[in-house]
Design a protein around this nucleic acid. Sequence first.
DNA 1: CGGGACATGTAACGCGTTACATGATTAA
DNA 2: TTAATCATGTAACGCGTTACATGTCCCG
Lengths: 212, 212
Amino acid sequence: MKGGAVMEPREAYPITYSILGLLAIWGPLSGYDIKRLFDHMLSSMWGAAQSQIYKELRRMREIGWVEMEREEQESRPDRKLYSITAEGLSALRKWQTQPPEVFQLRDEMLLKMLFGSFARSADLAQSLRASIAEHETRLLVYRQNTQAIAGAFPRGDKRYNPYSDENAEDPYFGLVTHFAVEFEKTYLRWLYEALELVESREKPAPSDMGES
Amino acid sequence: MKGGAVMEPREAYPITYSILGLLAIWGPLSGYDIKRLFDHMLSSMWGAAQSQIYKELRRMREIGWVEMEREEQESRPDRKLYSITAEGLSALRKWQTQPPEVFQLRDEMLLKMLFGSFARSADLAQSLRASIAEHETRLLVYRQNTQAIAGAFPRGDKRYNPYSDENAEDPYFGLVTHFAVEFEKTYLRWLYEALELVESREKPAPSDMGES
DNA sequence: CGGGACATGTAACGCGTTACATGATTAA
DNA sequence: TTAATCATGTAACGCGTTACATGTCCCG
């Protein structure tokens, strides 16, 4: 026997803390609610499949970080409402103390450009334009959100509304949104720059039919 | 039977194309070489464990995107040198044509700040300072790399040197590095801003016991 | 004489993704 | 009548990570 220390699995991951945070703010939530919050609030920073959320909630309940209460309904599956426990809150706080792990960008567009010398310029330009369109849209959405957002959740259902008045005062939301906007601006500037470079190489010989 | 269409697994992932790109540029490489290139060049955008690289190379060889030649050595395991094939190059090019998938930041620091209202300000400040230190270092490294880099690979072994003269002319490397620098600058600006916010809440009443 | 570089691998494990399943209600 | 919303789940699968294994050469 060498070490003998059997590594026990980590008990938490970013998605765990995301869910804890959402529960801490918006109180008892169902898996379905959490999925919606992910899609509306965290989509640009952390995705989560519906199936994963349900799985994770079950696991979190087993380790006592959340508790569940069943809300009975007719003609629909019962809502299972999850709340954060004291242990869960303390885990969230502890995580926030720890130094962050090494960050990796993991953006395919960067990889594509890194090996740009192998691609046809027209192909790269196409990818770049698609990327530009997407990020312009994002930027627009962020800006709309940070401004007039009363109508985002038309029913006035505060439970699902990350922009309701009670949260408007939270300076941390604004801070993170501000980063998202600054990031998109930086990224877009670069995309346009990249497109310029690519286009300048696209037609070095405008009407020249014969090549070496 | 409903659909009947059995989904066949994707045949390529970002790591696949990363390896293809590296092979396309730096010609026959061993798994060990590729690991080093990942660590030196792609560490900030795409990590890869050594075991995964070997696994992926085997898979890529099975689908004919790379070919392998054994270089015999005494007193060390033989080097297995991989090269990109015509099929591999065409797969790389095809990938570069396709519009990029939806990008997600996946940075834990952003999550921590998003739920900042639950943490002690001092804890957040600590995390932020650690993050600042790391990103300042990164920025420094990028800048050193883009300037005088002749000595990075002291042996003059061109095979491992991403900064050798023959690649210095590749404008795409410069483009991506430029983004990395701009990103770090934007991120750092935000981190300092966040730190300011957090510190302003750390001691709301310096020597003032009664307020408003 | 211990530690790093060189060089290859195997085994275990889980997060995250994709797909499938069910079924009532409401809106276009 | 078709589709979206509400609301829960299960099953399969693999990338990516962590840990372990082996053995030589070379440097301080």
